[in-house]
């Protein structure tokens, strides 16, 4: 389980009238299981980058080696790669097609050589992971589910393959706060249970700060910052320069500091901020 991206450049429609350089010399590595956030302004190349990880796109220059498979040279192992790297696209609910939810989820297993019993078990487990009740929904048509349920069914269709690396492109786009939290829970659960690396594309600073142990920030097809959320968000000016912002709690902390309340400047989550405020309150009382 490792990702090694070296000097990756990707040019769409090379030589054509709509030539566009989407990635320009991107390099990063990930070896230990972690939840990694990929952030950046619209059009900076996030979706392009993640599609290289399971060879849906191939490098124009540079190399991508995932789980020891070089996407450019190991053509015969691409199927294996696509099972080891699960990819959840933006609005995955639009890929549902089967007659029942269970059959749709099992789509990724059809050439796996597993027995029917085995497959059923996996589907049940995947549905459990996304908090869809098997007995209620397995035999329903996927088109009869609500939007949020469809989204979770589609995610289950990827989790069912038990990928070592899970890539999610804005999995929470268009969901309500509760739906977003549920997606975060799915990610955390999957990461812990399977020791998987999860790469998640998100525009939500608060989500990234609370969920990820590492954040990659992209700007115009390059990596602009790479580090822990605390490192990345410590430089508010720089974060703003690439079209992002710091988490809500960090902004509140900055506002408190400017009004003379000595909270720690590097808080990231609302919980940390609350603890800081309580600490100061205690100190003042003492």
């Amino acid at each position: 389980m490792s990702i090694v991206v070296k000097n990756l450049t990707h040019i769409y429609d090379q030589g054509g009238p709509f030539e566009a350089k989407a990635l320009d010399g991107v390099s990063f590595e990930a070896h230990e299981p972690a939840i990694i956030g990929l952030m950046g302004h619209t059009g900076c190349g996030k979706s392009t980058l993640v599609q290289h990880l399971n060879a849906l796109l191939l490098p124009t220059a540079g190399s991508v080696v995932v789980c020891g498979i070089d996407t450019r040279t190991d053509k015969s192992r691409l199927r294996e790669l696509r099972h080891r790297v699960g990819m959840v696209f933006q609005y995955p609910e639009y890929q549902l097609f089967e007659e029942t939810v269970a059959r749709d989820i099992a789509f990724g297993l059809r050439d796996s050589g597993l027995s029917e019993e085995e497959k059923k078990k996996r589907v049940r487990a995947a549905m459990e992971e996304v908090a869809l009740d098997y007995d209620t929904y397995a035999e329903k048509s996927p088109f009869d589910l609500s939007g949020g349920q469809k989204r979770r069914a589609a995610i289950a269709g990827v989790l069912v393959m038990e990928p070592e690396i899970l890539v999610m492109d804005e999995p929470a786009a268009g969901l309500d706060p509760r739906g977003k939290e549920e997606i975060d829970d799915i990610i955390r659960r999957y990461h812990e249970k399977h020791g998987a690396t999860v790469l998640i594309v998100t525009h939500n600073m608060d989500e990234a700060a609370a969920l990820c142990s590492r954040i990659l920030v992209m700007e115009n097809g390059t990596i602009a910052a790479d580090g822990s959320p605390r490192q990345v968000f410590s430089d508010a000016e720089r974060v703003k320069a690439v079209g992002l912002d710091v988490p809500y709690a960090a902004r509140t902390a900055a506002a408190l500091i400017s009004r003379g309340v000595p909270v720690r400047p590097d808080v990231l989550t609302v919980e940390e901020l609350a603890a800081e405020i309580l600490r100061i309150k205690e100190e003042r009382r003492a």
């Binding site: 696509r82 990819m87 696209f89 639009y94 890929q95 990724g108 269709g157 990827v158």
Partner: peptide, 16 residues
């Protein structure tokens, strides 16, 4: 675009 998107999504699930 939609075709491309769905095709990629199904390929990611092992479609050939």
């Amino acid at each position: 675009e939609e075709t491309d998107r769905i095709m990629k999504a199904q390929k990611a699930r092992g479609a050939d």
